[in-house]
Every structure is written in C-alpha cells, then in structure tokens.
Nucleic acid binder design. Structure first.
Lengths: 181, 181
DNA sequence: GGGCTCATGTAAGTGGTTACATGATTAT
DNA sequence: ATAATCATGTAACCACTTACATGAGCCC
C-alpha cells in the first residue's frame, strides 16, 4: 500500500472517531506534534487520496452555508493502520537540531557565547517540556490514557533530558572560566 | 545574509581547513549526521552558491585527469559562521520519529506487537549509540576535541536515553501481562 | 460590528533525498 | 583484473511549510 507516514497519522486520528481535517490538525497539534508534525497543506490532500484508496470515508455535513466534511475509518483503513503498527523493518528517524549544530562548531565562539547558546537551547526545551507538562493530567481519570499518555510522558522526559544536559555543560563551562581567573 | 542551515554546516566544516565537497560529506557522516544530515545533492550546489557569495573560495586541484576542487573559508565566510553561532533567536528544532508515532497509536495493537515495537525502536537507538560509541576515543589525546567531542558524547547519551526508556516500558508491559495470567 | 473559532482548500516555495551518470586512482 | 575509493555533478522526485483566499457561525 506504501503510504506516507503522515497518512498513518490521519488514519490513527480517525480511529478515535469521525473527524474533519480541521479536527485532525488540532489533534496533531496537541499530541504527535513534537515527534511528527502535520499541516493543512498535507492533511486535506491526503484525506482525498485516502478516500480514493478506500481507507477512509468522507461524509458531507454542511450546516447551513458552512461546508464541513467529516471522515471515518473504513475496515480497510483500520486494517492498514494495524498492519503498519505491527510491521517490522527500519523506522524513519530524523532529527534536525540547529542548536546542537551551532554547538558543534562553537570552538569558534567565546565562552560567553557558548554559555549563551546553551542557555538558549535549554530555554527552548524547557519551554516544550513545560507545555507538555501542562497537558498532563494531574488528577486521576482525566483524558489521555494508555499509549498517548505514555508518549506525552516520554516527551516531557525527553525535553527534560536535553535541558538537563545543557544545564550541566553550562555549569562546567562557567566553572572552568572562573577557575582560570 | 540568510543562508540555509546546511550552508553553515559547510562553512563550519571548511573552518577546519581546505576541503572538497566529497570530504565535507564524509565529515558530516561521521559527526553532525545524527542531528544534521547532508547529501551530495545539497553540498555541491551549495558550495557554488557560497562561492558566488564570496564566503568560500574554490581552487581547482586536478591531478592528472581526475577533477578535484577544494574549497576554503574566506574572511567573510568565517565572519558569517561566527555571527550565526553567536546570534540569538529561535533555533530550528525538528524531530520525526516513526517509532514513537506507531507507539502513540499502539492501543490498536496486541501486547506482543507493542513489546515488539519497543524492541525495534530500542534496537535502532542502541545501534546508533554503539556506532557513536565506537567513534569515541578510548585512549587519551585522540582526534576529536572540545565541542565536537561534546556533541558526540551527547549523541551517545541521547540515544541511550531513548533506548533505556524503551527498555523500561518493555519490562512494564511484559510484567503487566504476566500478572494477568 | 468586530474578533475569534470553525472550516476547506491551494499555489508557490523550501529543503532535502535518491538515483543515476561519469570517470580517475588506488589497493588487492 | 577488479573492486573499492575518490570525486563531481544533476534531474527527478518527495515531504512538507507558508501564505494566502474564502467564508460561515458564534460570542461580546
């Protein structure tokens, strides 16, 4: 069947029930976004393609003059999703981290600039971490369960890990400088 | 000046000395690759662009019938690189992690499939970790120093972190299943 | 009335990979 | 001799983002 990964994002989100393209985008933005983002420019055309393939089914739900098209997963779509989750083979993994890239070349910078860079990187990851943390249900029995909750927790730990790494190096660099003076 | 990030990869690599496009690719593959990859299809055209901008200087070094063009950083190029490293503003950060994506939707899978998925993800990160580890100088006073060494160490810790996270969840899932039987 | 959210879409552009074509030099 | 490495490049393609256009419904 050979679908794009983003197609599976759509199938996965539709597994939760009937959704519009708009809904899917909103869902992605509060869940998979930090490890797999998606934009309208992908979602809408992809929904059409998936419908042509018989993996999803669209139903016009215009209310008054307002257009609205909600999609749901077909049996074939559900099957495709499941077999993708369970299939083996190498998993696409890609990281693009400008901060780390600058850091890699930071031999060319002053110590102040090096520390400043680390602080910027740290602030960014702390920001994401805190944002994810604020989505985490404090009280028992709130919205996300099972695997979505686990990935949320992973996101928090992941960003915290990078932030902590920065913090450690910041301390090291400032100490080394202080010792030299 | 508004260059692509990959342009800075090239500038950064040329800071180490005169290099061909081929050399740059090889360097990237053993250093920045896991957080910023680059292919020939980007490097060669970008080198030309950078030369047009006066940031690098190419010198033909054909030996016999074999073409070879080595580039070096100009003063303007060095300045551009430095100011990029020290400049503020948000840093491009992007992660695409298919394993995590499948995991997010793994409510739709059996426990065996869930554990299998985690094992696959773990194996992949352990593979990268071990590969990076094998590049790390065991003995004192070997090749990579300063920041490149730090990023290498980060890469090892980073991949190990994800692998450990998988391992923890694998244990949890298999225990929960055992307890139910 | 004005601003926000809901809702759909597309065109242009970006950034990047893959696959191929070509050929010299070097090591086995 | 032949395989690996050195070396340069490009064309086609892919995935994705950004920016824009359009408009209805809802709340203050």
């Amino acid at each position: 069947m050979d679908l794009s990964k983003t197609a599976y994002v759509i199938l996965g989100m539709l597994r939760l029930g009937r959704r519009t393209g708009y809904d899917i985008k909103a869902l992605v933005d509060v869940s998979t976004r930090f490890f797999w983002a998606a934009s309208y420019g992908q979602i809408y055309p992809e929904l059409k393609r998936l419908e042509d393939l018989g993996l999803v089914e669209g139903e016009a739900q215009a209310q008054g003059g307002r257009q609205r098209r909600a999609y749901s997963l077909t049996a074939a779509g559900e099957h495709e999703l499941r077999s993708w989750i369970a299939s083996g083979g190498p998993l696409h993994f890609e990281l693009r981290h400008e901060g780390m890239l600058r850091f890699f070349f930071a031999d060319a910078a002053t110590v102040d600039e090096q520390v400043g860079l680390l602080r910027t990187i740290r602030a960014q990851h702390e920001g994401v971490r805190d944002q994810l943390r604020s989505m985490h249900p404090e009280s028992e029995a709130e919205k996300p369960h099972g695997f979505p909750l686990r990935t949320l927790e992973f996101g928090i730990a992941y960003n915290d890990f990078i932030a902590s790494w920065c913090e450690g190096l910041e301390a090291e660099l400032t100490q080394a400088t202080a010792a030299r003076s």
